[in-house]
Amino acid sequence: MFIYPMLLATAPSPFSDSDYIFEPKVDGHRLIFSQESSMIQLYTRHNNDCTQQYPELLVPFDDDISLDGEVACVDPATGLSDIDAVMSRLKAGKHDKIQRLTSTLPVTFVIFDILQYKGRDLRRLPLMERKAILSTLTLPGPAFGIIPYIEGAGEQLFEQIESWGMEGMVGKRKNSLYVSQRSPAWKKVINWSYADVYITGYRKGEFGWLTAVMDGSGKLRPTGIIEHGPGPKVKKAFYLVSREIVAGEDKNFVYLEPYIRAQVKMRNWTKSGMLRDPVFTKFIV
């Protein structure tokens, strides 16, 4: 049975609070694990069935259970979760490819909450009581793990997150109940990276600015689209200036001479050299 997950609000900066626990934020995709009468089903946060994608997770617990967590693929070179590898696993379609990826890109289900167990709905219990029950589980195989947490010391943990190059951390109020919606009781703090880019065009329909950086040979290399960050005044100023530097257009985009530079914050660079989730922060003069 699918349970819509509890989603995170965003904290503007790292914080410490004795009423919270703090966990590393795993760079993977959300997974709801459901086992009923020994039948296992796996769901993404959007209620897409992904049971067949992860054969190594189709190992039963000792009783009916519903769990919330993240699917991760660890890069052996860095010890960090590799989001591109996770997406390769999620998008694999053919059975033989899925079986091959099980060996070459094995996943781990990193569990951080227990929602139902042995026929009992646990969502109305405070978080720390759910954590206590979760800690008693016998995990069914090596592809399962339980995420660690610390109490209170969020800023100290975030310093470690930065030094390790991890995605960020999550702060959760100790007495929070599990609600199937976005809630300020759970807050994410992203370990942002920053980059300077050229804005080389814009989308004609839904808002989006094309970006590029100079490669080693001095040529522009596309790096994706900014879809978040600038307010109405910034957008107005951009479009006034962009009229003077139009280089061409097609059905979907207007292309610009590379005169406008901007700073963006982002999750990280993808392996293909693209900005991951870029957010505009300011123009560079």
Results as ranks from 00 to 15, higher is better:
Leu58Gln: 14
Asp64Glu: 12
Thr51His: 09
Met39Gln: 15
Lys25Asn: 12
Asn47Trp: 08
Pro24Thr: 08
Leu57Phe: 08
Thr51Asn: 10
His29Asp: 15
Cys50Met: 11
Thr51Gln: 03
Arg45Glu: 10
Asn47His: 13
Leu31Asn: 00
Ser66Ala: 12
Ile65Phe: 01
Ile21Met: 09
Pro55Met: 05
Phe61His: 02
Phe33Val: 01
Gln35Trp: 03
Asp49Thr: 15
Phe33Lys: 00
Asn48Met: 10
Cys50Pro: 05
His29Asn: 15
Glu56Gly: 07
Ser38Ala: 11
Asp68Gln: 07
Val26Arg: 11
Leu58Asn: 07
Pro60Leu: 01
Ile21Lys: 06
Gln53Ile: 04
His46Lys: 15
Ile21Arg: 00
Glu56Trp: 01
Ile40Leu: 04
Phe33Tyr: 12
Ile21Ala: 00
Asp64Arg: 09
Ser34Ala: 12
Tyr43His: 13
Pro55Phe: 03
Ile65Pro: 08
Tyr43Arg: 01
Tyr54Met: 08
Leu58Trp: 01
Glu56Cys: 10
Tyr54His: 05
Ile32Gln: 06
Leu42Glu: 08
Pro55His: 09
Gln52His: 13
Ile40Asp: 03
Ser38Phe: 13
His29Pro: 11
Thr51Ala: 06
Leu67Gly: 11
Asp68Ser: 00
Ile65Gln: 05
Ser66Trp: 10
Ser34Asp: 14
Phe33Cys: 06
Met39Lys: 14
Asp62Val: 10
Ser38Val: 12
Leu31Gln: 06
